[in-house]
């Protein structure tokens, strides 16, 4: 090869490439925009129809109103569903965070074949289609003689939230520098105090992020929950029942409200987490669960 720069194909000056590149870049950006339009069209639609002055959820636009929002507190069954859903989510978050973290610590400490197998086993409910999980749990609870209700719903939610907490915390534990725990023990702290003073502060953000994820997952779950509820529905199950008849725009209103609220909450939580430990990596929720409202 005589020349060090491989020659261009005839008639193609060096800068032709960057022009073509520019056009490609433009197209890519337009594509990105199109995808975002697609992703946000339903959200905007829901919010708009929560403000539409008509019981029929179709165009033409019937004028602006806030009456659907104002009517919310009076809707007894809706309020009851929200309350029940929050109860379920609250219990699920507390139990899943404690149990999941405990499992992660155990799995981190005990290596070996049986530990790997167990880790894979508890993740199974996350990778099984939701309705199969729901049916299998319904069968199990009936066989055990459990009445459908708060207990069955919470147990059902635990099956897919505990492994998520475990995995998130375990990932963090695996990334920790083992020298820190060793240093702590070298300085005279026993295993328990080492865990409390050294390990705990380092996994705290992971646990909080997992708890946040668990909250949104539990509160929005419907596919599995449908199989487990008794007479009291959670909010999404209530909405699901309503959609059979075509629901009123008050559902749009409550969903808009909750959606806005949860986005705000999550943003605030992320801010706090970030400020507390800038170094420990973004706890930005990673949707591990395939079921509906991952983070």
């Amino acid at each position: 090869m005589s020349s060090i720069a491989r020659p261009y194909p005839a008639g193609r000056p060096p800068h032709a490439r960057s022009l073509g590149e520019g056009i490609g870049e433009l197209l890519a950006r337009l594509g990105l925009l199109a995808v975002f339009l697609f992703l946000y069209a339903p959200l905007v639609t829901i919010a708009l129809f929560a403000l539409n002055d008509s019981t029929i959820q179709a165009l033409p636009w019937a004028g602006f109103t806030t009456r659907w929002f104002e009517a919310l507190p009076a809707d007894r069954s809706l309020v009851a569903a929200v309350r029940f859903g929050l109860t379920v989510a609250g219990i699920t978050v507390v139990v899943a965070s404690i149990v999941g973290t405990l499992f992660a610590v155990i799995l981190h400490g005990v290596r070996g074949r049986s530990s790997t197998v167990l880790q894979a086993a508890i993740v199974i409910p996350v990778v099984v289609p939701g309705l199969v999980l729901g049916l299998s749990l319904a069968i199990t609870f009936r066989s055990l003689g459990l009445q459908p209700g708060l207990l069955t719903v919470v147990l059902g939610h635990l099956t897919f939230t505990v492994p998520i907490v475990t995995l998130l915390v375990l990932t963090r534990l695996n990334r920790l520098d083992p020298a820190l725990a060793q240093a702590s023990m070298d300085l005279g702290a026993g295993p328990v105090r080492t865990f409390l003073h050294v390990t705990c502060p380092q996994i705290r953000t992971a646990v909080l992020a997992a708890a946040l994820l668990t909250l949104t997952l539990s509160f929005d779950e419907v596919i599995v929950t449908y199989f487990l509820v008794g007479t009291e529905p959670t909010l999404p199950v209530h909405i699901w029942a309503q959609t059979r008849f075509g629901f009123t725009p008050s559902i749009n209103a409550v969903v808009t409200l909750i959606g806005t609220l949860s986005v705000v909450l999550v943003v605030i939580a992320l801010r706090i987490l970030e400020r507390r430990s800038g170094a420990s990596g973004s706890p930005a929720a990673t949707p591990i669960d395939h079921r509906e409202g991952a983070p």
């Binding site: 992703l39 339903p42 029929i56 179709a58 999404p236 959609t243 559902i251 959606g259 930005a284 509906e292």
Partner: peptide, 29 residues
């Protein structure tokens, strides 16, 4: 971009699906 893609997941799954009913209907958007 990452956050904007993930945000829709925070909105109820059921309702996102229902929104398509509003968008695609005979008198939809």
């Amino acid at each position: 971009v990452l956050i904007l893609v993930v945000v829709p997941l925070w909105i109820s799954y059921l309702v996102r699906v229902y929104a398509w009913k509003i968008i695609l209907g005979d008198q939809g958007v």
